[in-house]
């Protein structure tokens, strides 16, 4: 459903992503790990359509269409969802009101009827249970004054209501306590489906004990340098990125004579 080829992305003339390739098929969960500043959030934001980032080369195909041609709200309507690393506060706008507007925008795009208040509340109640979210957060302004963990949980709640095709979770586990981590993971797991893909960005293999990925990719300096199964996450947890970088360096030197 998602095919990224040779993606190069710059911000203010700094190249952040330097030729990234990635393919996600329906039903798959891909984890992306990598050191701070390696470009993980950049990838997430580019997928969602943030226009500060300039795509200088490469392509992104989403369900057979050119994703880069779509405005961000169209991407969302087409089924891309980004759970923000830093969710944004919208003072004075209640979480329910916001979500209802969002859901109806998405439904309208899909040619479905708008949900009336009753049906909407039924859906919201059900999904809230799923992520064990406190009902008071519904009537509070979007993310305003939410604790770090509450914000993250709210992102998963939004996702569960909007039912995207491809969910990109940018460090949704950071800042969660043990219980919240399990709840968020359960929420994600219950949304796993044959026609839904996940891109889970995380620093901790702990999350991947709960959300077991089909693939793990390591992003270093704007490129995916290693891909593997879930055991790759364990290896990283044990040895750190230093191990990988060293190994890459030695691969490069041992490869050099061959090319020379």
């Amino acid at each position: 459903m998602l095919k990224i080829q040779n993606l190069h992305v710059s911000i203010e003339d700094n190249e952040i992503l330097k030729g990234l390739d990635l393919e996600v098929k329906p039903g798959e969960v891909h984890a992306i790990m990598g050191p701070n500043g390696s470009g993980k959030s950049t990838l997430a934001q580019v997928l969602a359509g943030r226009d500060e980032y300039e795509v200088t080369e490469g392509s992104i195909d989403f369900q057979g269409e050119d994703l880069l041609e779509m405005d961000p709200e169209i991407r969302a309507c087409e089924g891309i969802f980004l759970a923000f690393q830093y969710p944004v506060e919208i003072p004075g706008v209640s979480n329910t009101y916001f979500l209802k507007a969002a859901l109806n925008a998405v439904r309208k795009h899909r040619g479905e009827n708008e949900l009336d208040a009753v049906d909407f509340l039924r859906l919201v109640r059900e999904r809230m249970k799923m992520v064990e979210m406190d009902e008071t957060l519904l009537n509070r302004p979007v993310n305003e004054g939410f604790s770090g963990g509450e914000k993250k949980r709210n992102e998963i709640f939004h996702m569960s209501v909007l039912e995207p095709k491809l969910a990109v979770l940018d460090e949704t586990d950071s800042g969660l306590d043990i219980d919240a981590l399990r709840i968020v993971a359960n929420g994600v797991n219950s949304l796993r489906a044959e026609d839904r893909g996940f891109l889970v960005i995380t620093h901790y293999q702990r999350l991947l004990d709960y959300i077991v990925p089909d693939f793990v990719h390591v992003l270093v300096d704007g490129r995916i340098v290693r891909s593997g199964g879930k055991e790759l996450a364990h290896e990283l947890e044990d040895k750190g990125y230093g191990w990988l970088e060293a190994e890459l360096a030695s691969e490069a030197t041992s490869a050099a004579p061959v090319g020379a």
């Binding site: 969602a48 944004v88 004075g92 706008v93 916001f98 859901l103 925008a105």
Partner: peptide, 26 residues
């Protein structure tokens, strides 16, 4: 970032601005 956040949930720019401004005036 507020507008983009709304966009990423499916709301177009006009709707986003009106939502944010209405919140501001609540």
């Amino acid at each position: 970032d507020q507008i983009f956040y709304c966009n990423s949930r499916g709301l177009d720019e006009e709707t986003a601005v009106s939502l944010i401004v209405n919140g501001f005036c609540k």
